[in-house]
Write a protein that binds this DNA or RNA. Sequence first.
DNA 1: AGACCTCCATGACGTTGCGTCAACTTCGCG
DNA 2: CGCGAAGTTGACGCAACGTCATGGAGGTCT
Lengths: 213, 213
Amino acid sequence: MSNVPDLTKIRGKREETKASNRQAIIDAARIVFADLGYGATTVRDIIRATNLASGTFYNYFKSKEEVFQALQDETALRVRPRLRAERIRARNFEEFIVGTFRSYFDFVKNDQTTFIAVRRHREIPRVRIDTPEVIAGFEELRVDIENAIENGVLPPADADLLMASMVGVAFEVAHQMLTRDDVTADDAARFATALFLGGVQALPRKAKPGKKK
Amino acid sequence: MSNVPDLTKIRGKREETKASNRQAIIDAARIVFADLGYGATTVRDIIRATNLASGTFYNYFKSKEEVFQALQDETALRVRPRLRAERIRARNFEEFIVGTFRSYFDFVKNDQTTFIAVRRHREIPRVRIDTPEVIAGFEELRVDIENAIENGVLPPADADLLMASMVGVAFEVAHQMLTRDDVTADDAARFATALFLGGVQALPRKAKPGKKK
DNA sequence: AGACCTCCATGACGTTGCGTCAACTTCGCG
DNA sequence: CGCGAAGTTGACGCAACGTCATGGAGGTCT
């Protein structure tokens, strides 16, 4: 009998149930948040939806906020590589912009459940929470913008503000897309792209003179 | 002697303490939220910061969420008239855009405490909550955009998406402004304005054919 | 294979905040 | 002044919180 454990797969039953418990909590949370709304759900509601004991929850997360972050992070980690790939592939200004928006809106459209679930709060009309992974995604965009500027793909503008603008437009337009049902991912992407294609040319040069910091 | 009550001022001691209690709760909440962060704050923390009894709280709000909304609404009701005035005064495209952004960023800059307080959560990096009054402000912008389009001040674009874009850019750029300290309200306004002045020209024509709905 | 130890799931427990409610105080009005 | 309406108070029952001692299952060493 081979006693060589498959190192890349199973690290023992210990680690296995650990991962499975964590995932069970996250999955239960996704359902419960969507069902009761974020504010109304309690840690107890979440563990009740698993077959784990209350104490176990606290071995994995220290509050429902932390589970929520894990949920958001999961999503962020799924989108980021796609966006990144699009931008790296871009050989010019237009491709940079259109690639980013297109794949983001496509993702949102195909993944509506997650996004809608998150917004389905009862008490509060609309909420947005940025977790570390989401913020890391913003940072990635900023870096890509800076590189694009250096390579002459983008005109020299303030990278922070340009990143912020793209993020803002992406989120708000995506929200419209989910609210109205007559806006396709393509409509959204064409709108956002046109705005930036036209707008970026006109931007003032860097607000801050030198490099960052 | 005069038993004619000043109708516009005091409607009797009853109404007076009612208003004062409500305001006391809101004021206490503003401080406590800023201090402990939104998530960590409890209803008890808020009433402890007033000299009212716990039961009294529930005569005015039914949860901390509701107090928070009242706080947001207070702010929204202060900004909206200014933005509206700017847009109505606008005699052309540029004035419409620049007026809106300038006064919004000025407001945020002068009112940092409110905005920073709201963001000073411990558990969660960054949060945004839209209350009914805030959403009403968005709607106001949308209507103004539609009117501007009808009057030929703005080119015919999708008003919903244009509104969403302006909102997104306004929020995100304002956030940058508060995070970095080298961005003035003027920098922010010039950036956002340039983006839209250049970008709006290039927008696709209305995604939806006829009038709204 | 067995003994041993480590790790973690369990659920009961004390604590804290929740929302309600009966008793009481204050206001307005005749 | 006296009565009813309106609103405040804090104690109470209940639910969720986060912890911790216990036990059982997984890994390791001989």
